[in-house]
């Protein structure tokens, strides 16, 4: 049982490392869209690993943690999509150095 505790703690530690990187990414990225990338990508695995780690540490909770993982995997992309979409329609520009903004181009086309 000791080995389960150590494994669970390690998995949780790796998960929290990803969560930390996600937080660093939110500070370092240049504009909202790139921040959303950091805020969704690095945190999905971070949350999943943290929950699984707790599940391994307390095997009785594993089922619950798996349910939470499914909820996170479903809700995480939806919320980030909603934020990105709202930001684009609020007129937030992409950072300097962005290659293209097809959505804005197409919308101008619609207005004309």
């Amino acid at each position: 049982m000791e080995i389960l505790k150590i494994a669970g703690a390690l998995v949780t530690l790796v998960g929290s490392l990803f969560l930390f990187l996600g937080a660093v990414g939110i500070v370092r990225m240049p504009d909202l869209y790139n921040r959303m990338q950091a805020g969704t990508k690095a945190t999905t695995l971070g949350t999943i690993l943290t929950l699984l780690g707790v599940g391994i540490y307390h095997p009785a909770w594993l089922g619950r943690m798996l349910l939470l993982v499914i909820f996170v995997a479903i809700t995480n992309p939806i919320s980030s999509h909603a934020l990105a979409r709202a930001a684009h329609f609020a007129g937030l520009k992409l950072t300097k150095g962005s290659v293209c903004d097809t959505l804005a181009d197409d919308e101008e086309g619609d207005d004309a």
Partner: peptide
Amino acid sequence: NFDVASRIVRRKIPLNPGI
């Protein structure tokens, strides 16, 4: 996750973003 995490830890974040 590894892709984005590895971008974040670089000294200058490699970005070439667009929609």
